[in-house]
Design a protein around this nucleic acid. Structure first.
Length: 412
DNA sequence: GTGCCGAAATTGGCCACAGAAGGCG
DNA sequence: ACCGCCTTCTGTGGCCAATTTCGGC
C-alpha cells in the first residue's frame, strides 16, 4: 500500500472505485460518491494491499492482506507454499458508509481512518452494499448482527441467489449484497480464488468441504435462475432478448461444464493463459482486440462467449449502474475462471449425475429459448416470410428468385 | 502423446424493404 | 405545441462462406 488518493492526492488511498477507475481515500470516497444518486451507486471495494492499484478480490487470512486477482494469483499460485492459504471474498459496496460502519464490516481492516459524516449523503449503512463472505463468517460466530446477516446471505450464494442478492437486501441491516466486480466467484465459504478468469485453468484454493459436499449446491445451480438475472437486466435496460440469450449461449456456459475436466495442476499452461491484467474490463478489451484473435489455441469457446458478452453490453458502459451491474453480475458469472458451483480438484468432484443433470437442464432450456425467439415486429416477420430470395438473400420485388417461401417455386 | 487431415458443426454476413424513430420547417 | 414531410435506422429469414470443433488415423 502507500498509493495516494487519486482525488485529493494527499491521503492514502484505501478503496477502489471501478466506475471512476480511481483509488480513493475514505474521505474522498464519501465526498465523491455522495454527490448524487448515480455516483452513490458506484461500487467500490478495498484496494489491493500488495499492488495498491487494483481492486482487492480476496482477503488472505494467513497474510492478513487484501489482494487483487493478480496478486492473489501470484501469491497463491499452485504448488507454492502459500497455495493453501484460506481466503475470503471481499465484495463491493455502494452508498456512503461511515468509517464506523466500514470498520464494523471490514473488521479485518484495522486502520480505517475516521471520516467525518457527509451531510449530502443521507443514506449510510442503509444504502451500503457490502459483502464480507467466507470463513470468517463461520469462524466468527459471535460477530455483530450485520456480519451475521451478510454471512447468512452469502452462505447461500450460488448462482441462483446471486440476482436476488443483487436487488434485494438481507434482513436486519438492509444490506444489499453486490457480487464482486470481476471474476470473483460468489462461492460462499472459503474462497476459491480465480485469478485467471480468462483461461480455463484451475487455481489453488481451500475448499470448504461443507459447502461443496452438498450436492444441492450444484444441484440447485439452475440456469433458469441465472437467466433471471439477465431477464431482469433486460427489463431494466431494454436489451434485446436475443442479446441476453446469447449471454448463455453454448459457448458461454458449456465451457463451464466442460472445463472443470481440464487438468488442474498444469501450472505451465495456466501461466501461459494468465492474463496480463486481472481487471475484467481490460480482459474483455483484450478479447475484443483483433490482435488477440490470432491466438486460437487458447480457450476459443471462452473467447466466443466473452465476445458475445461484450457485444451484448456494448451500449451499457459508462457511469450508469448498468456498468456496475455488468461488472458485478455478468463478470462474476461469465468471466470467472471456473464455475462457482464447481470447485476444482478431488474435493470438489461432484457426482457425474448431478453435473449431467445440470447440463441437461441447461441444454433443454436453451433449446426452449431458441424456439421461443421473440419477434419484435410481427409485420416484418410476416413480410420476411413471404419475401422471395436468391440463395437466401432477399431480392428486389419483381426480380428473378430461386426461392419463394409461399410456393417453393423458382422464377427461372 | 502429438500432429495431421477430413468431416461435421457453428457462426456471421448478406440481401430488400416496411415501419419505427428522429430531425426539420 | 402540433403537424407533415423527409431521412435514417432497424429487424426480419434463408442461404452460404468462413471458421471452429471433432474424430479417426
Amino acid at each position: 500500500m502507500g498509493a495516494l488518493c487519486d482525488f485529493c492526492g494527499e491521503h492514502r488511498s484505501m478503496v477502489y472505485c471501478r466506475s471512476d477507475a480511481a483509488s480513493l481515500c475514505l474521505s474522498c470516497d464519501r465526498n465523491v460518491h455522495s454527490a448524487n444518486a448515480l455516483s452513490r451507486r458506484h461500487t467500490r471495494t478495498l484496494l489491493c494491499d500488495r499492488c495498491a492499484s487494483q481492486p482487492a478480490m480476496v482477503r488472505c487470512l494467513a497474510e492478513n492482506a487484501s489482494l487483487c486477482q493478480n496478486c492473489d494469483w501470484n501469491g497463491h499460485i499452485a504448488g507454492s507454499s502459500s497455495a493453501g492459504h484460506k481466503r475470503q471474498t471481499i465484495n463491493c459496496y455502494s452508498g456512503c458508509p461511515s468509517s464506523a460502519e466500514l470498520s464494523r464490516i471490514w473488521s479485518f481492516v484495522s486502520d480505517i481512518p475516521n471520516v467525518a459524516p457527509e451531510p449530502n449523503c443521507e443514506q449510510g449503512i442503509s444504502m451500503m452494499s457490502i459483502s464480507d463472505s467466507g470463513v470468517s463468517n463461520q469462524d466468527n460466530a459471535a460477530g455483530d448482527s450485520i456480519l451475521l446477516d451478510i454471512a447468512s446471505a452469502t452462505l447461500v450464494s450460488d448462482i441462483g441467489t446471486c440476482d436476488k442478492l443483487l436487488v434485494g437486501s438481507s434482513s436486519g441491516a438492509g444490506v444489499n449484497l453486490l457480487p464482486l466486480a470481476t471474476g470473483q466467484t460468489e462461492t460462499a465459504g472459503s474462497v476459491d480464488s480465480t485469478p485467471d478468469k480468462d483461461s480455463c485453468m484451475q487455481v489453488p484454493y481451500t475448499p470448504d468441504k461443507d459447502m461443496f459436499s452438498k450436492d444441492s449446491i450444484y444441484e440447485d445451480f439452475c440456469v433458469d435462475d441465472a437467466d433471471l438475472a439477465f431477464e431482469n437486466y433486460e427489463e431494466l435496460f431494454g436489451t434485446s432478448h436475443i442479446q441476453t440469450e446469447q449471454l448463455f449461449d453454448d459457448a458461454g456456459i458449456d465451457i463451464y461444464f466442460e472445463m472443470k475436466e481440464a487438468p488442474a495442476g498444469n501450472s505451465t499452461e495456466s501461466k501461459l493463459k494468465q492474463p496480463a491484467n486481472s481487471n475484467a474490463v481490460s480482459a474483455d478489451s483484450g478479447m475484443s482486440n483483433p490482435g488477440v484473435k490470432g491466438d486460437s489455441s487458447v480457450c476459443t469457446p471462452l473467447r466466443q462467449a466473452r465476445s458475445s458478452l461484450s457485444l451484448s453490453f456494448a451500449g451499457l458502459t459508462g457511469e450508469s449502474s448498468a456498468g456496475d451491474h455488468q461488472d458485478c453480475v455478468v463478470s462474476s458469472l461469465l468471466l470467472m475462471g471456473e464455475p462457482p458451483w464447481q470447485p476444482p480438484g478431488p474435493e470438489g468432484s461432484i457426482a457425474g449425475g448431478s453435473r449431467d443433470s445440470a447440463l441437461t437442464r441447461y441444454k433443454e432450456k436453451k433449446m426452449r429459448r431458441k424456439f421461443d425467439k421473440k419477434i419484435r415486429y410481427a409485420s416484418r416477420k410476416a413480410r420476411a416470410d413471404v419475401r422471395k430470395r436468391v440463395k437466401g438473400r432477399f431480392v428486389k420485388a419483381g426480380e428473378a428468385y430461386d426461392y419463394d417461401p409461399l410456393c417453393q417455386t423458382r422464377s427461372y
